[in-house]
């Protein structure tokens, strides 16, 4: 299976505008590979560089050095994002639009034919159980409904790679279960999923492989099953050990 997502010696520095302020190194020579059909968990404590990596992959931030590729196309080229779907941590959508208008808008960005767009909208609204509210403005939706609308928009182009940024953050147990079901369904369909999360139990359940980032450096990368076998403990304990917490933690 070929690499769908790849970073090569990715380095990101944030320079402050203030005089004499230090340059902050957010990512140090990150090499990462995600293969087709994998569900890849991207872990790390706050400030580890997960969001920066995600920002580079989505073209929000230009790397200081190195490069990142989606489907072997540099992320600097917008076309690299033609076959991806992205679900942000929080819902950020045009609240004056209805769900179907939002999906139609994003479908146009992907240059989807009109007939296919309408078919996809029907399918996705059914999938995320928003058919009944399809003509209501998003501002009238509950938080869970908005997150489901977000999932629908992430899938509008039938993406081969899904980038999910804390997809279950802030959702109630029912909402989390639904999101998990959707990820599972996508995995069954052979889609590649790359997601960052702090919910290690969730990652352990759905991910094939994980990478743990700490202080901008890749500390570990491997198959979940291999790590569990190697360390003989839960993913959460492995994570704490790698980020240097276990030493101080009570035995």
């Amino acid at each position: 299976m070929g690499a769908i997502l790849r970073t090569e010696k990715l380095r990101v520095e944030y320079r402050s505008r203030e005089l004499r302020a230090e340059t902050k190194l957010a990512l140090k020579e990150l090499n990462l590979t995600v293969n087709a059909g994998e569900v890849f968990g991207f872990l790390g404590p706050n400030g580890a560089g997960k969001t920066t990596t995600m920002n580079v992959l989505l073209g929000y931030v230009n790397p200081t050095a190195g490069d990142a590729f989606l489907f072997d196309v540099s992320v600097k080229n917008p076309i690299a994002r033609q076959r991806i779907g992205y679900l942000p941590e929080l819902t950020y959508y045009y609240k004056f639009l209805t769900a179907e208008e939002l999906l139609r808008f994003y479908a146009r960005i992907f240059d989807l034919p009109r007939s296919e767009t309408e078919k996809r909208i029907d399918q996705l609204l059914k999938l995320v159980e928003l058919e009944h509210a399809r003509k209501r403005p998003i501002r009238t939706y509950s938080k869970g409904m908005q997150q489901r609308a977000g999932i629908a928009q992430a899938l509008i182009n039938n993406p081969d790679l899904l980038l999910l940024d804390e997809p279950t953050s802030g959702l109630d147990p029912l909402g989390r279960m639904k999101v998990r079901e959707i990820i599972q369904r996508l995995k069954d369909e052979g889609k590649t999923v790359f997601f960052s999360s702090h919910e290690l139990g969730e990652v352990e359940t759905v991910c094939d492989r994980v990478a743990i980032l700490h202080n901008g450096e890749l500390k570990m990368e491997g198959r979940v099953s291999d790590l569990l076998a190697q360390y003989q403990t839960s993913l959460e304990q492995i994570f704490l050990k790698i980020v240097g917490y276990s030493a101080q933690a009570p035995a």
């Binding site: 992205y86 942000p88 950020y92 959508y93």
Partner: peptide, 14 residues
């Protein structure tokens, strides 16, 4: 401010 720019720029649009 509403961060709608992020999902938008995550699409193939410059």
């Amino acid at each position: 401010e509403s961060r709608t720019i992020f999902p938008l720029l995550a699409k193939p649009i410059s």
